[in-house]
Amino acid sequence: MPRNSGQREGSPFTGLAPVFMKEFSDHLSSARMMVLMLFVIVFGAFPVASSLQELRNITEADAYLFLRIFTSAPESLPISFVFALNFIIPIMAIGLGFDSVNSEFNHRTLSRVLSQPIYRDALLLGKFLGALATLAVALTALWLIVFGAGLLLLGIPPRGVEVARAASFLLVTIAYGGVWLAVAMLFSVIFRSTATSALCALGLWLFFFFLWPMIASAITTGFAPSQFRTADEVLAVEQVGSVLARLSPGTLFGEAVIGLLNPETKAFGYFANMLLSQSRGLIPGAPLPFDQSLLLIWPQITGLIAGMIVVFAAAYIVFQREEVRA
């Protein structure tokens, strides 16, 4: 018999479907999901309701009026729907993923499940996809509610391009949720205690949401020369700031969403926008066609998906090395 040599046999995806179905149905029927949905609806409904109130009073012609439901921040409550999503999606994803592996461990179901003919790959991937599908269902429901409310209250149907932009926005939202889900699962694999894993995931989220923008701008200021001589220098410093800020998935999501829902966006950053319009003679307020907008935010989308895969891979590696025994 060869000693520990050779490939293992059988597909790593054996048993993926049952794990996925179980996770999906567990999530959908869980009390936690109810709480999360309530949370999402409350946080999502306020900005949408108040922005709809304001949009109804707008009289000037706006080709992308429908998309403004998502992005406009009403004066009464300076939070747009998109901003609210940037805030609540991580919480939802962490809420779904923080105990996915360690709770199996703590309830001593892990070794029993792994003694069935499946690989750990299938278990982890099934759990991830199950939670992601749950998240997708919740976000799609929310998206449809907002869309329906817009139809009813604005009284104008969206144009095809607006629907396409809004649908792409939904996909980006799900990808953003996937990043935080992968983060939550990584911690659930690393820590045996569910409380520790939830704290770490939430801590990381707080760090990226509140601290990182400040740290990024502090670092950028450190890079800036005492006096700017050329416009290129200004632009270079701003780019350093953008690159740093984009390490946070929230920034990537924010930029991708703005690019999609604000067709006027042509570049990210104040100076970059100004220079672009000056050098290429672009009209500042004119919208970009949909495909150009997509091209603009392609790096952000790729970044989100790559981040999701990298974090999931890390969770996978840690999980493979973990001992199943108590």
């Binding site: 018999m1 060869p2 050779g6 293992r8 046999e9 059988g10 003694s115 499946i118």
Partner: peptide, 17 residues
């Protein structure tokens, strides 16, 4: 061989942890 063919082994062996 449980190292190379864990699925075959686990299909035939019941485990009560």
């Amino acid at each position: 061989n449980p190292v190379r063919q864990p699925l075959e082994v686990k299909r035939r062996v019941g485990y009560l942890p």
